[in-house]
Amino acid sequence: MRGTTVITGADGYLGRRLAAALLTDGDDDLVLAVRAADGAELAAKQQRLDQLLGPQARDRTRVVAADLSRDDALADVDPRAVTRIVHAAAVTRFNVERDLARRVNVNGTARLRAFATRCENLQRLAMLSTLYAAGRRHGDVLEERFDDVGFVNHYEWSKWAAEEEVLDAAGDLPVSVLRLPTLIADDDSGQVTQYNAFHNTLKLFYYGLLSLLPGDGTTPLSLATAAFTTSAVTRLLDPAIASGIYHICPDPADTATLEELIDISFTVFERDPGFQRRGLMRPLPCDQDSFEDLLSAADLLRGGPINQSLSSVSPFAHQLYLPKTFRNDALRAAWPGYAAPDPIALAETTCIRLIETKWGRRTQETP
């Protein structure tokens, strides 16, 4: 039966890809909720989405302004028509301020949950979260509800708190929490159209602005592509799939370690003539106590290049000292035969693209 799927953050990196996938693979009408300050911004975002989604979107999509910091964010959406909600709107910076993270990620999710309680035909409320809602845990991390064990940054805390908002309603609503890994490329080609801490840290290494490697080299780093993640989310939106908590990530045996990823990255760098001319060495491992001392010393050099480099790494670096293995048993059971990208091959192709485009300064085709 044809339904209506609401996607918040529909103009975002994953939101627009999910919209395209649902247009191709399903027959739902889509309500694309975007943040817009006025009619002009809404019209511009609608035009951009029309261009990205193509002619197939014309009769099946409606773009609405929805600021989840307001109680009436979805006032233009009839809750009786809604059968699925995908909550993709969030501030995803590791260095986000706590007040902003609370206002957007936590309170916004609470408002969306309140809207969902009015959707009498709702089949799924899916929240896109992060694996690092696990906070300061280490060891095996299961697909289950987390206790508060402390967090490395406000972003992690806010996604855990947002999970709590929807999981508190799991007895009354068909809730799924989909925890995502670090997305380092659009697809297996290594093309990058959205940059994050992974790419920015590699840029510091490539240009010689960071010579130390914080973290335990044995720490597994769960990486994936937007294409893999979109396919997984689309699969888990199927009403035939049980609601619950899912880790959308490679199998533990197919997850590369920090040491392995640094090795393949520098293997690619060292083939580049520009990098060769700089004569840079591979970064030296740095234990946690030494890294803390370095951060304290750099804080005295406000505005200097050392302080700037470390400040871009420090909001997530502490996670690299907390080795954890994300189990994905529920995902594998719900998606038989799935295949995540090979992490070493993906890191290699991504590094090649980063060098070719100079981290986005040279034009590359944007999907």
Rank of each mutant, 00 (worst) to 15 (best):
P336Q: 06
R327C: 08
F228C: 06
P323A: 06
A253Y: 00
S189Y: 08
E365Q: 15
K358N: 15
T349M: 15
R145D: 09
D238R: 02
A89K: 03
A134E: 03
R179F: 01
R277W: 07
R235Y: 00
G171Q: 08
R93S: 15
L209M: 14
V104W: 04
A20R: 14
R35L: 11
V86F: 01
L213W: 02
R332I: 09
R179Y: 01
P220S: 12
V31S: 05
L23S: 08
Q276S: 12
I248S: 01
G108H: 03
F151R: 02
L212E: 13
T109F: 07
R282Q: 07
V192K: 13
F205N: 06
A90F: 11
I248Q: 01
D50C: 03
R277V: 10
L32H: 04
Q319F: 09
N107G: 11
A253T: 09
G108I: 07
L331R: 01
M281Q: 13
S243E: 06
T130N: 03
L261R: 04
A317L: 00
A298R: 00
Q123H: 02
K45Y: 02
I306A: 06
H199I: 15
L14I: 14
P341T: 12
C351Q: 15
G26W: 04
L178C: 08
A227N: 12
E260N: 11
T201M: 13
I264R: 12
P252Y: 03
M281D: 14
P283A: 13
R145G: 04
E165Y: 02
N307C: 11
E144A: 14
D27N: 12
F115C: 09
F198G: 06
L284N: 00
P305W: 07
T325K: 07
L122K: 06
D71C: 04
C249Q: 06
W335G: 01
V313F: 00
A89G: 02
R2K: 14
T61E: 08
D272F: 05
A101F: 07
E270L: 10
K358P: 00
W359H: 13
D289E: 14
S311T: 12
L53T: 09
D67V: 03
R113Q: 05
A33D: 03
P283F: 13
P214Y: 11
Q191E: 14
A330I: 01
P252T: 07
T219Q: 10
A126I: 05
V96H: 06
E164Q: 13
A169V: 08
